[in-house]
Design a protein around this nucleic acid. Sequence first.
DNA 1: AGCTCCGTCGTTTTT
DNA 2: CGACGGAGCT
Length: 794
Amino acid sequence: MKPGGIAARARAAIAPAGPQASYLAGLNPEQREAVETLDGPLLVLAGAGTGKTRVLTARVAHILASGRAFPSQILVVTFTNKAAREMKDRIHGMVGDQIEGMPWLGTFHSIGVRILRRHHELVGLKSGFTILDTDDQIRLLKQLLAAENIDEKRWPARLLAATIDGWKNRGLSPKDVPPGEGAVFANGKGGMLYAAYQARLKALNAVDFGDLLLEGIRLFRENPDVLAEYHRRFKYLLVDEYQDTNVAQYLWLRLLAQGSKNVCCVGDDDQSIYGWRGAEVDNILRFESDFPGAKVIRLERNYRSTGHILASAAHLIAHNEGRLGKTLFSEGDEGERVSVTGAWDSGEEARAVGEEIETLQRAGHRLSEIAILVRASFQMREFEDRFVTLGMPYRVIGGPRFYERAEIRDALAYLRCVNSTADDLAFERIVNVPKRGIGDATVKQIHDVARAAGVPLQEAARVLTESEELKPKVRGTLRGLIQAFERWREQARTLSHTEIAEIVLDESGYTEMWQKDRSAEAAGRLENLKELVRSMEPFENLPGFLEHISLVMDVDNGAGEDAVQVMTLHSAKGLEFDTVFLPGWEEGLFPHQRALDDQGKAGLEEERRLAYVGITRARASARIWFASNRRIHGMWNSTVPSRFLDELPDAHVRVEESRGGMGWGGSSYGGGGSYGQSRFDRAEPFAASSYSTPGWQRAQTQRGRSDTGGGRGGFSERGGRYDAGASARRGPMVIEGTLVASSSAPSSAFKRGERVFHIKFGYGEVTGIDGNKLTVQFDKAGEKRVVDTFVEKA
DNA sequence: AGCTCCGTCGTTTTT
DNA sequence: CGACGGAGCT
């Protein structure tokens, strides 16, 4: 399939439609209905590639053009800053400068903070309150845990942060947390710690991300007059990616929507992949009952992918039960079938994909139109290694973001201290960075003074330097720092914020600290600091910049270069490519074992939606891979092909000969016993396998009786790994197969010095035993650690 | 104050 | 296996 063909088809499908307003041109009937249905609640179920953003932006244009509302009377909420930016750009393209009058287009959080700033006194905040980032949050919680004498080993601050976040996502303030749930953390102290945390936030005049919505909800509930003001203001409400909203966002939105009732939510239940961070698919499933009189419009006409790709995705997602149901169709070519290829191991998978990409490149495909979408980021490494070897340009999307880097956070903490004497968390962060001899003991003294006097840390430090409490050396250093902050604040009145930033980084010794650092990353960190100062330029002043970055943690990573795009399936949502490689379709990895263990069927369905998202990213070519052997936590494990492979429709899939070596299960090992149920277990490609016995059915029968400790012999004659010796012994919950051995498994039946055979490494001798993990000196492959279920006595 | 060793853990990510 | 964080040692 040539990319040009797709583009041409897409153009044809959205051909101009007549002499109407330009924003209506090229809309199909459903899209047009979604744009023109302005009164009352509307849910637009927009499948992948059906033009959802187009509908949303055209709808805004239509509202404005019909004179039903001023720009300032439209609320448009997105989930990410990127989406907000795109929306803004596209609306600008349609309505021109009217966009300037739309202050209420943004993320839930940026709009949330805007509202809180206007009414801060009503929720107990002072003007100029700060927004904590995750680091600050954790540090604060650590202090609380220490104060309560809670063992941070058993009850990590991270876990508490996640728990509190979870409550906030569900719209629960401390008093609303069900007592049973509050008791879960630290022997019943969870609820109390949450309350204490909120109290600390108030004392610091700070909020966290969750509060931006939660406090907004409280504001509206406790102040009907304020809510009424927003009811009058917002004539139209539009929400993007509605399937990603959490309970708090839903409550917030519902309060606002009580006004005009003209609320339009756009989303796709089949692309809900953020349940684990609080997104509530139920919000979209329940829309019609939540908003009485709601109209539902389905967008099912797909302009992105070819027929085989769409049919494959549709057949896969049809295995989910909890969905509103829609079927994508296209009027274009069938295109190329979705391919499924097995590789011997993850290395070969990467090697083979690399070769295919080289072939595509030679055929004139742009690398930036090729993506590798993985389930978990550790999978990326092997591809990266391979691309480095090949000299193939690639680009990893996602990963640690600019503003999350330590040096950026440190620099920002300095600026926050300049900006506000009351930003205790920022002060704490940098008081001894670079190391200047102000250690824990001194910090504690400052804390004590601050608490006793009820003043911020900076002020307490100043008081302390005027007393005789500190050792002269420390006293001098601390005084120097405090005076430096006072000086910088003074200079900030006359100099530009970028100049101040440079002065602060320079005079504080922070830049110097990295200049002296001889580690490999130091140069990059210095570069990042320069980039930080550059990124401040467009802002009017320091507070403006700080406010912006507390909400916008991403940075425009200048795309453009022609490189293979490597990213997780999650970060691929919303993107599209001509060719998509989907490696790692193996039980345990995808669907991920943890999703199965923790969430059961709901988890499986979310994984399946992830698979759906993956396939539907492809315009012309989707290529799925699985490896028969993969190293997990340093140990090689045999794997079972993903059940999702069995859920793809035969007629639209092409099973490729495996690349190189013996493929995924040469005839001497594959098949056999209860193991050969799936077509992907056979060396013979595709013996017209039936859907009636897909992998997940095996999963059902295997559920609960898998036993990681028993059944040695791996692929031995007496049957599959999962059958052999499967006793009723209790083990970890497993839906199908295990990638990782249970650590509590009974000790191994192997002895040191025993000769064994391993399917991947061949013959060897056991040199060490640790539970069910063996260290084996293989004759050819050298020393490896393997799980005993994957070797047999030789 | 700084380094080193040891234990733990290992999916996905936004604001 | 390898990254990270905390405790403990010098």
